[in-house]
Write a protein that binds this DNA or RNA. Structure first.
Length: 672
DNA sequence: GAGCACTGC
């Protein structure tokens, strides 16, 4: 590997030091002691084994004898279900008995359940009805180092709960590096006490690092300015000179995956006859499930798999048989511009934690090798952990949820990492303009609390809650459910984009994308048309799994509204809105305006759009029916920048008068 | 004119 090549940057090895292993029995005793003695225990370096074992230790040590439960939160549904299944097996019980899981749409628990795995987002929802989490004696937050929005918020709230409940035990599981930060955050400051405990008495760190196979790390001797070319080079070198074992290559997105696979395909042709072949396979979240399956199938005789993946392979998806990891050192991360309200996807260097996680993917079954396409000095210069999501997201949904939990002052809230105040202010502004927050900064009742309860972003929640007034509740339920699919409804089954566009045209209407998606939902669920079948989806370039999800989401939304006592035909509540002779399309268009007035734009003669203030040039996303058609005023669901161009997605035509009619305050201010 | 990193309720 270390030979000079055209790119002038050979890979050099870092000497590998075998880690010391802590005997499992000793680990158990230390953990049980720590959790007994300290309200807060931070566990460093636990992998799947420990995540499954620790709650069982606690269960067997009597932490649920008083009838309470142990909660283990996960950032992803798949982890909650798979780890709970494993624990149930180890306990020798049926899943849903002593061990179970609870995720959105699926509650596999019973009165007997003692160990409950759930997503961190769902535990946050539980806090609405049980703010002190009284049913749990221990809450374990797994994968805290990922710094997801919900696990960060959960830790803030747990910090408060701990002060009110000296009996509660919080266990935070993190991969290396950040342990001190979590402990500092949850424990009292130096010299202070909480429930009569000093910082030293309040929490402890237990380290169980190094239980996987060793992975040799190689770095470049000098940086490269074309990591894709270097990646192709490295992959080919591994393939021709290293022993058996599949390769996992991390790049940043779909386009890079396609490019890389094309380049590899060109190089494969040059391989000598009779040599082992290389099979490149793409893996990214947007890939339809049937195509993702190839990645998990064993390669044929004399074939080496090369999986070219996004970050999905870093933690969400695990592939057996990976011995070699090639890490370009980059990732695509979301950034939110609070001034323009635009989301961006930026390619940025990974964090040390990410790089370590990526390398670890090579050592799951036996010792492996990781090739980092950057220098050791570059690695040392990386941020230790990924920038927390709370510092780079649209915070309107979070702010709404926190207010509904009784948090009044969002600026002074005790965050694990403070979000930039511009993000908080922007969120409050939006919530105010939607009527969820009053002039005093308090959540309104019932509108604000209802919006917070719905599992929808605020603008969509507001729209749905307005639907009865326009006599289009049923339609808006379907549209809301389809919007949660985030553009995944249509899909190419064989890479044929033309078929997809043809299919889209079959459902398209002149009013725009929302009603087009409504037509898709109607057709899919119609017993005489789509019959909720995968076959029909295939024929219409539709994503079967996504549409099934829409059906579930719609049911759930319907349940929420039923519980709120919201039904169709609440027309009498507002005689200002005359919907009598109005077409259903117009009712939906007007209703959408009441939630998305802040996302209004007008098409210019060149086909681009401008916002009301006229400061930004926008383009219809290629998936919109207005990519090709003319329009005047529209509202859009989402705005995102890609490659320097700002795209708006999911557009529906509106009349300018509706904007001032339904949002007079908002447009009065804007026009000054 | 030509495109979503990844999760979650």
């Amino acid at each position: 590997m270390a030979e000079e090549d055209d790119l002038g940057a050979p890979l050099i090895a870092e000497l590998h030091k075998p880690p010391a292993l802590l005997p499992i029995a000793q680990l158990k005793d230390r953990l049980l002691y720590a959790i007994e003695a300290f309200p807060v225990t931070i566990i460093v370096g636990a992998c799947i084994n420990e995540t499954a074992q620790i709650p069982q230790y606690l269960f067997k040590a009597g932490w649920t004898n008083d009838g309470s439960q142990i909660a283990v939160t996960q950032p992803r549904r798949i982890a909650a279900t798979s780890v709970s299944a494993r624990v149930a097996e180890e306990l020798g019980c049926q899943l849903g008995q002593e061990a179970g899981y609870s995720i959105r749409f699926e509650d596999v628990t019973s009165e007997k359940t003692k160990i409950k795995f759930l997503t961190d987002g769902l535990l946050l929802r539980e806090m609405l009805v049980d703010p002190l989490l009284k049913r749990y004696s221990v809450v374990m937050v797994d994968e805290a180092h990922e710094r997801s929005l919900s696990s960060d918020i959960l830790l803030s709230l747990l910090k408060k709960v701990l002060r009110a409940r000296p009996d509660l035990r919080v266990v935070v599981s993190s991969a290396t590096l950040d342990a001190e930060k979590f402990l500092d955050f949850l424990a009292p400051d130096d010299g202070e006490t909480i429930n009569n405990k000093t910082k030293e008495e309040y929490g402890t760190i237990v380290s169980i690092e190094g239980r996987t196979h060793p992975v040799d790390i190689f770095y470049l001797s000098s940086s490269t300015n074309n990591y894709i070319e270097k990646a192709v080079e490295t992959v080919m070198n591994i393939h021709t000179s290293e022993a058996d074992g599949d390769i996992l290559l991390f790049v940043t997105g779909r386009e890079e995956i396609d490019d890389t696979i094309d380049m590899i395909a060109d190089r494969i042709v040059d391989l000598p006859h009779g040599s082992r072949s290389l099979q490149p396979l793409p893996l990214y979240a947007g890939l339809p499930t049937d195509q993702q399956m190839y990645v998990f199938q064993k390669a044929g005789e004399n074939v080496r798999k090369l999986i070219v993946a996004t970050n999905i392979a870093e933690a969400s998806v695990t592939i057996e048989g990976i011995i070699y990891v090639v890490d370009t050192g980059y990732v695509k991360l979301r950034a939110y511009d609070p001034v323009l309200g635009i989301e961006r996807l930026n390619v940025v260097p990974v964090s040390k934690a990410s790089a370590t996680q990526r390398a670890g993917r090579a050592g799951r079954t036996k010792p492996g090798k990781c090739y980092r396409l950057y220098t050791e000095a570059d690695f040392e210069a990386l941020e230790s952990a990924t920038f927390p999501e709370i510092q780079r997201s649209n915070l309107a949904p979070v702010v709404l949820q926190l207010m509904n939990l009784g948090i009044q002052n969002l600026v002074r809230f005790d965050y694990l990492s403070n979000p930039p105040s511009a993000l908080v202010v922007r969120a409050l502004d939006l919530l105010f303009s939607l009527g969820a927050v009053d002039i005093h900064g308090r959540l309104t009742k019932p509108l604000g609390t209802r919006m917070a309860e719905l599992p929808l972003e605020p603008m969509l929640a507001r729209t749905l809650l307005n639907a009865p007034t326009f006599g289009c509740l049923s339609e808006m339920l379907s549209i809301s459910a389809m919007m949660t699919l985030q553009g995944t409804a249509f899909v190419t089954h064989d890479g044929n984009q033309k078929l997809l566009e043809k299919a889209r045209r079959r459902f398209a209407v002149k009013e725009g994308d929302h009603i087009t998606l409504y037509n898709v939902y109607q057709a899919f669920t119609n017993p005489a048309v789509g019959k909720q079948s995968s076959q029909w989806c295939r024929e219409n370039s539709l994503n079967y799994k996504a549409l099934l999800k829409a059906v579930s989401v719609r049911k759930q939304l319907r349940n929420y509204l039923d519980r709120m006592g919201i039904q169709e035909n609440a027309l009498a509540s507002s005689d200002a809105i005359r919907v009598g002779g109005m077409s259903m399309a117009e009712r939906v268009q007007r209703c959408l305006t009441t939630g998305f007035f802040a996302h209004a734009a007008r098409m210019k003669s060149d086909g681009s759009f401008v916002t009301v203030g006229g400061e930004t040039v926008l383009w219809a996303h290629p998936s919109s029916i207005f990519f090709h058609r003319k329009a005047d005023w529209v509202i859009y669901h989402e705005i995102q920048e890609a490659k320097g161009k700002v795209y708006i997605r999911d557009l529906t035509t509106v009349e300018m008068d509706w904007l001032t009619e339904y949002a007079p305050e908002y447009y009065k201010v804007k026009q000054k």
